[in-house]
Write a protein that binds this DNA or RNA. Structure first.
Length: 424
RNA sequence: GGAGAGAUGGCAGAGUGGUCGAUUGCGGCGGUCUUGAAAACCGUUGUACCGAGAGGUACCGGGGGUUCGAAUCCCUCUCUCUCCGCCA
């Protein structure tokens, strides 16, 4: 959510910047400014009326105290009209405020100047490529066949237990999952992130705070009986730790990491692109979150990107880093880097991480602020997060890229966590 | 699931219709004192919006109502806690 005052003070800038997200904001911005002025005028009138009312009420109180009952009753008569007016002002005010809000939430976050122009995935900028694509023999198998061959993942069993998109990991498959989680958490801890074990369900306020609600309601599993939502990412509970808080600037940045299962309904997305582990309703992910000072948030973003890069490097996966173009980035992001790893048997790049700076967009909703030494008014902080990493596609790439006639080789960095070097 | 209690400022905790945005204590900040620190003492210490400013308005879990006037009374919703039951 963009700040109202900012929109009011910089209407052209907002419109101009949002063009890069292929969003025409001119109409909405104009309406917001118009309504904002009405709102302020109304507030002035309402406040004045209320001030008068408060004054009279106090006077009446004193009169009663002094035993001047007749005067007091006379004064009461003056209040009825004021009362009516105030009621009207309040109703109108609330209506305008609501309208402004409805418009305000339609505006996406402004992209950073680094964001390339573009419409879709093809326009993303490849900022870096690393690692070596493996040379597989001709009969290399896709990961879902490898998973079956070595009894690592049972997709059909998941269907029996729950439904499509809920695989069952077993044996070394399950152990590999656990090893990856521990490896990612260990790396994050080493990098100074405090580990969090968050609830896997959140309430409406939290869903709203990070922007899943009200718009993306359909993407989350909703437990209607208790009105709770299964989290689509640990970002939701972890970032909401900082909802409605005022931090001390000298404590910034706050760094948290969390492993969680993630639940996504992904309604309607079935087909050949979603085979195997490519897209699931439940998957595991380690997330990193930072709350940063606005002056430092891009530095922070670079650090987070470097952290994620370190992970894919240690796993020995061929990867590339994309800077998302205006048309492909999310509604809430100001700058996003996607990580893709190459899954050699599918011959496909798979997205395994998305690292974003939301600047003040989420923090505005969250009312997440910090106080600068000696400055009275709290300022809005910046929020960032990234996957570090999402497991399924990492597993897919590991299985496919590391397959040999003897079995699947575990990357060296992971062996201390798996306890085995080979799946065979 | 049954019974009860409660929700007030960073925390603790007063306040049952009127100068209450809210007593007090703790914590925080500033100062006096001290070689330094502690103690003691003095002062200060919420957020949002409007306003050039003076200042004004709103907020005592959310919403609604009664009243000239509500933290205080009424209705309603939500949440939390305690005890019992069940259970990991």
């Amino acid at each position: 959510m963009l700040n109202l005052k900012f929109i009011q003070d910089n209407p052209e800038l907002v419109v101009e910047k949002l063009k890069r997200k292929n969003f025409d904001a001119s109409e909405i911005v104009a309406q917001i400014i118009e309504l904002y002025q009405q709102k302020n005028k109304l507030q002035g009138q309402a406040d004045q009326a209320k001030a008068e009312m408060n004054k009279i009420s106090k006077e009446i109180g004193m009169m009663f105290k002094d035993g001047k009952h007749e005067e007091a009753n006379a004064a009461k008569e003056r209040t009825s009209e004021l009362k009516e007016n105030i009621k009207q002002y309040d109703t109108d005010f609330a209506a305008i405020e609501d309208k402004v809000y409805q418009l305000q939430v339609q505006l996406p976050n402004m992209p950073s100047d680094l964001v390339p122009a573009g419409r879709g995935a093809d326009d993303n900028e490849i900022v870096k490529t690393g690692g070596e694509k493996p040379a597989l023999q001709a009969e290399a198998l896709p990961h879902w066949e490898l998973a079956a061959k070595y009894n690592l993942i049972d997709f059909e069993l998941g269907v029996k237990l729950t439904g499509a998109g809920f695989p069952v990991y077993r044996g070394k498959g399950a152990q590999l999952q656990r090893a990856l989680i521990n490896f990612f958490l260990a790396e994050a801890t080493k990098a100074g992130y405090e580990e969090i074990q968050p609830p896997l369900m959140v309430n409406e306020d939290s869903g709203f705070g990070t922007g899943q609600l009200p718009d993306k309601e359909g993407q989350m599993y909703h437990v209607t009986e208790d009105n709770l939502y299964l989290i689509p990412t640990a970002e939701v509970p972890v970032t909401n730790i900082y909802r409605d808080v005022i931090l001390d600037s000298k404590d910034l940045p706050y760094k948290n990491t969390a492993y969680s299962a993630c639940f996504r309904r992904e309604a309607g997305s079935y087909g050949k692109d979603v085979r195997g582990l490519n897209r699931l309703h439940q998957f595991d992910k380690v997330e990193i979150v930072q709350i940063a000072h606005p002056d430092k948030s891009y530095e922070t973003l670079d650090q987070m990107v470097a952290h994620v890069e370190g992970l894919v490097q240690k796993l020995g996966l061929p990867y590339r880093i994309l800077r998302l173009c205006g048309g492909d980035m999310s509604f809430t992001s100001a700058l996003t880097y996607d990580f893709e790893v190459y899954s050699a048997a599918q011959e496909k790049w798979l997205e395994v991480s998305s690292v974003s700076n939301f600047e003040a967009f989420q923090a505005n909703r969250l009312k997440l602020r910090y106080r600068e030494d000696g400055v009275k008014k709290p300022q809005i902080a910046h929020t960032l997060n990234g996957s570090a990493l999402a497991l399924p596609r990492i597993v897919a790439a590991l299985l496919e890229n590391n397959q040999t006639p003897e079995g699947i080789k575990i990357p060296e960095a992971l062996v201390p966590f798996t306890g085995f070097e080979m799946i065979n």
